[in-house]
Amino acid sequence: MFGFLINPSKFNKFADIILKPLILLCSVILIAGLILVYLSPLDYQQGLTVKIMYIHVPSAWLALLTYSIMTIYSVIGIAFKMPFSFIVNKAVAPIGAVFTLICLISGSLWGKPIWGTWWVWDARLTSVAILLLIYLIIIFLDKTFENKEVREKTTAIFILIGSVNLPIIKFSVDWWNTLHQPASVSKLSSPSIDISMLQPLLVMTIAFSLIGLIIAILRIKAEILIRKNR
């Protein structure tokens, strides 16, 4: 049933079915999300700049999600020797890098009016910047080695070693006193974010993940084709 997650030909078949509805769904949700963002209330302190959040937070979540997916696929790839997982790693890494970059740039733009500075060396910001560096190293490692097996396995092991950064990012706001605000949505019992802001945020997150998913599907399909024709 979930064979499309590990088998290239099944993945191709599944992707062909799902791609067009996915694009349609994504555009609908993205438009709905943008409208919701437009209608959402202004913050009484921050004014209009609070709307940067609707880009900043989803891209941060997706940067982490992408890395987690790569970690899972690396484990699968090393343990069960499945070539598809290396295809996924290669296809998905630039997407994660772009999400991290969007997160950092939007955060920087947000920080200037609120904190009065483009950049502070606080734990959350620094660990996300290191995540970007890790993504870049993964992309470079993939271009470094001539031999296919070495390239794939080295990248996969590096992804595994680099995954220690994920909990550091997640808990950096709890472990160190930082300027960055602590988690406000994931506190399930009582989210400290107002429902009128939570709704557009969640819709935008779904839209962002669909965009990421569509690009990932296209990139994986392209990578499968390249390998077939080599």
């Binding site: 890790i134 470079f140 470094t144 080295t154 092991i157 590096f158 070693i161």
Partner: peptide, 19 residues
């Protein structure tokens, strides 16, 4: 990690610096 890496010398140092 970089035993077979004949072209990109700096990446080994980058990895040490990172960790």
């Amino acid at each position: 990690m970089n035993l077979l890496n004949k072209a990109n010398f700096s990446i080994g140092g980058i990895i040490v610096l990172l960790f």
